[in-house]
Design a protein around this nucleic acid. Sequence first.
DNA 1: AAGCCGGGGAT
DNA 2: ATCCCAGGCTT
Length: 334
Amino acid sequence: MTHRTPTETDLAAAHEAVLTWFDAHARDLPWRAPGTSAWAVLVSEIMSQQTPVARVAPRWRDWMARWPAPSDLAAAPTAEVLRAWDSLGYPRRALRLKDSAAVIASEHGDQVPCDEQTLRALPGIGAYTAAAVAAFACGQRTTVLDVNIRRVLARAFDGHAHPKGALTKSETAWAAQFVPAGPDAPGARHVAWNAGVMELGALVCTSRSPRCEVCPLAKQCRWLAAGRPAGDDPARRPKTQAWHGTDRQLRGAIMAVLKAAEAPVARELLTASATEFDPESDPWFDPGFAAGTVEAAILRVRELGDGQRIGRLVDALIADGLAAESGGRLHLPH
DNA sequence: AAGCCGGGGAT
DNA sequence: ATCCCAGGCTT
């Protein structure tokens, strides 16, 4: 996959357009406030992985008020960490964030490292988050590539409706040339470019219904000039994963019950006899799956062909946290 | 490269 | 009912 190389003139125009637009239209996200710590920025990035930022903000505020430093989170009970994560989704992110906090506290003097490679070595921090933290928390010139930036660059400069497949080294190298040069500093142009293009993808150059009529890159956008051709056949794009009736829904239901229950209640639920459960009714397939039927869910785990995998995953999430509160009586079958 | 990991709001 | 979201990890 080869990419088109922009001219210096196009680059300069794009920089001017995006930076001006961002200055006027940036959302008032709480972690953009002056004085936000690097740790607070890192937390916001982890919470925002595959999660709309609008839903992150309130959880982030509570989280940072409760655990303002990495060492605070590292010392927190896992059950409380999972509860504070609330329903942000992918709760393993919360566990990895706690693990990262412990490493930062013990090996980095409770200070978030600014080196991209050091960041990448932390659990739960990949290419995107390492670049984002280095840029937004440390003012470094990195190539931030999330779904938004990849889409904006693909459209404006390559003329494609969507980026192709998984991120490759060559695409990263191509994207790097768009990032303005300059000395590292919190308000540097390259930081604003990364944040601005991301914002543009989130607010204007959206996946489904882009608002090209208000886009600052409209004049030079190859995709718009070509008449906004549709992307590759949808079959090439990964299908949305199923939810109803899947392992994921089941795990989520168990987590929800455990998070909501007081310790004695959880103990009662988890040790209750399941004799009243009727396998024919498959209650967990019901979107209305409610607290109080967790024993039925656990019985279902026993029946599933790959209950081994499910048990391992649920164990990993709750064994040392929520289950400990319930007297350690949660023994999912293996 | 592909599959898996949540959950809720928008379309 | 499907798509989408400031991705990362394992196989």
